[in-house]
Amino acid sequence: MSTTYKRQNPAFYALIAALIMMSLGPIILMLSTSLQLNVDIMSDSSSFFFMPTMKNYETVLCNVLWYTPEHVDYCNPSFARSLGNSLIVALVSTVITLIVGCMAAYALVRFRFMGRGTISMSTLMMRMVPPAVLLVPVFGIWTFQYGLDGTFTGIVLVYVAMNLPFVIWILQSFIIQVPIQLEEAAKMDGASPLQVFFLVVLPVIKPGLAAAAIFTFRIAWNEFLLANALLDRNTRTVPVTIVNSLTEHDIDWGVIMATGMLLAVPPIIFTFLASKQIITGMTAGAVKG
C-alpha cells in the first residue's frame, strides 16, 4: 500500500512540535523532578542540567529492594505496600468486570427477551453516576450492612459495578459485528450456548476486550475517593497514599513525583501498546461508522 504524503508548510510542523511539547511537557517535568533530590528542586538556580539520581525511587520502594539503600534512615513501607494493593485491586476488578460484562453484553445483543430494551437503556444511564455520588451510600452500606470496609472484596465490588455499564455498552458494539453465521455453524456442530460464547465469540472480539480492559484497569488503578473512604491502613491504594502524604508545606517533591511516576507508568505503557483500541473505545459511542 502506498500513501502519498503532501509536503506541508513549515509552520504546520512547528504547530505539531508545540502540541507534542505541550502534552508531554508536564509528564517529562514530573519525570525529571522525580530524578532530583528535594534540595536541588528547592534551590533557586535553574536546574535544567542535573545529575539524575535514583534515590527517590529507592526511598519509595525501600522495603521491596534486594539491598538496603544507605541514604534511607527510616523505611516507610506504605508506598511499596500500596503499590502491591493497587495492582491486586486493579487486576482483579478488571478480570471480573470483563467476564461478567462480556456475558451480559452478549445476552443483550444476541437474544430477544423481555425487558431487553429497558436493561440496555438503564445500563447506559448508569454511566453518568459520578463516584462522589456513590460516596455516602457506599460508605454506609459497606460498613454497616455488608461488613466489607477495609477489604479488597469491598473495593473490587464497587469498581466492578462502576465499570460494568461502560464495559457492557462498549462490548455490545463489538459483538454486534460478529457474523451470526459463525455462531450458527458452531451450534449446528453441537456446541452449547456457553461453548459458543467462550470458544467462538470471545476470540473474535479480542480488540473490544482489550479496549474494555484498559478502561476498567485505568479507573480501578486511578480512583481515589471511594478507595479513601473504604480502605484502611493496610489495604490502601497508591492514590490514597499520595494524597495522604501531601501536606500544606514541606512537601518532598522528589519522592512524591517518584510515586506519581510509578502510578503513571502502567497506563502509559498500555497507551503505547494499545492506543488504537483505546481510540476505538473512545469513539465507539459518539461517532457511528
Partner: peptide
C-alpha cells in the same frame, strides 16, 4: 501523534493534580 495526545487522559487524575 494521537497516541501522545491521549496520554494526559490515561494518567491518574491524582498525578495530573500533582504535576
Amino acid at each position: 501523534l494521537r497516541t501522545i495526545f491521549i496520554l494526559p487522559m490515561m494518567i491518574a487524575p491524582i498525578v495530573v493534580g500533582l504535576m
